[in-house]
């Protein structure tokens, strides 16, 4: 005899009731009157949750909920209690505590980048071309202005670029350079996935007397294009956001911020690795073409001197490039692997 509530089908009416179980037959009585009976095979039994009685749902939608919150039915399948057992098993909880961060790390920092790198190889050239052109259109509209450099200065950059590209046996059709003025970027250069490299006025002026240093910077940017870094970043971001969307489901703002900063960290690490890759590409090509890492080091030093003035903000910590000092030392000590 089990005391509980009887809920009538499709109605908010509730009755206090008693359930009697005989072998495989159950009958529910309210006020000494049988309100519902059924064989147990046709019953639906709710999932096994801690602190919640297992309720019975009859075929017509009526329900019986025992008063005792710990009540379980003898005919309930053992399957549903498995999870509840796992959830209250101390050993398993401790194991889960250890395994979860490890798995999370493996997933976000190994599997996601792995998938992203594989995905990159399947991206067709036409897509890369479109991606580059559309990004450039957006950047140009928002933060770039026509160059202030004289024709001669611009021609010097152009000539240096053509020399470098032809020395590398790269297609001059794909690889092109453009000079823009930009307050947003300062002295800088960046590469777009389809082979367009943008050099700012400030950078061109800064290294006007040291073309070999500028060449080193250009090689670094070509390295980004050759290794398809933008495409990788984009595919990384896409894969990571899918992973997070799958994992998070419905968490609240705090969890989102924690995971969000995790993925920002991931982006950061990923792009730092890319900077090293582009550096190494530039250094290897410099050596192959008969220049030395010293030129790259000089270029970085000029940038470092410039940076002293306005990059003191502590947000610099989060910048995508590794510390300039480290990179300068790396450039000086670089020896090409055979």
């Amino acid at each position: 005899m089990i005391r509980g509530y009887f809920y009538q089908p499709n109605s908010s009416r509730v009755q206090e009731a008693i359930a009697r179980l005989n072998d495989s037959h159950i009958a529910v009585y309210a006020d000494d009157e049988c309100v519902c009976e059924s064989s147990v095979e046709t019953l639906q039994v709710s999932a096994h949750l801690p602190g919640q009685a297992s309720e019975l749902t009859f075929t017509d939608g009526a329900r019986f909920v025992p008063l005792d919150v710990a009540h379980r039915w003898s005919f309930q399948s053992g399957k549903s209690s498995l999870l509840a057992k796992l959830e209250s098993n101390l050993v398993l909880i401790v194991c889960a505590l250890v395994a979860t961060p490890v798995l999370l790390y493996a997933l976000l920092f190994k599997l996601v980048p792995g998938i992203a790198v594989t995905a990159v190889q399947t991206v067709p050239d036409a897509v890369v071309e479109q991606m580059g052109q559309q990004s450039m259109a957006l950047i140009e509209r928002t933060v770039l202005l026509p160059s202030d450099l004289s024709e001669k200065e611009q021609a010097a950059v152009e000539q240096l670029w053509l020399d470098t590209v032809s020395q590398l046996d790269l297609s001059a059709q794909k690889y092109r350079v453009d000079v823009y003025r930009s307050e947003h970027f300062g002295a800088n250069a960046f590469a777009l996935p389809h082979g367009q490299v943008v050099v700012t006025d400030e950078l061109a002026r800064l290294l006007a007397d040291n073309p070999d240093a500028l060449r080193a910077i250009l090689l670094h940017e070509i390295g980004h294009v050759e290794r398809m870094h933008s495409v990788r970043l984009a595919s990384q971001a896409a894969v990571a956001s899918i992973a997070i969307a799958m994992l998070v489901g419905d968490m609240d703002i705090v969890a989102e911020v924690v995971l969000g900063s995790g993925s920002a960290l991931l982006d950061l690490q990923f792009s730092q690795n890319m900077e090293w890759e582009a550096d190494n590409y530039a250094l290897a090509q410099l050596h192959r073409l008969g220049y030395s890492g010293e030129h790259f080091a000089q270029a970085l030093e000029s940038l470092a001197e410039l940076g002293e003035e306005h990059e003191q903000s502590w947000l610099k910590y989060l910048s995508t490039h590794p510390s300039l000092q480290e990179r300068i030392e790396h450039a000086r000590s670089y020896t090409p692997s055979p």
């Binding site: 801690p50 999870l83 209250s88 889960a96 395994a99 798995l103 994992l247």
Partner: peptide, 19 residues
């Protein structure tokens, strides 16, 4: 306490089954 058990098992199984 009860919800912690549910939560951590949910998290673990979600990671193991890739979501």
């Amino acid at each position: 306490k009860e919800y912690f058990g549910i939560w951590i098992v949910n998290l673990l199984l979600t990671l193991v089954t890739l979501g």
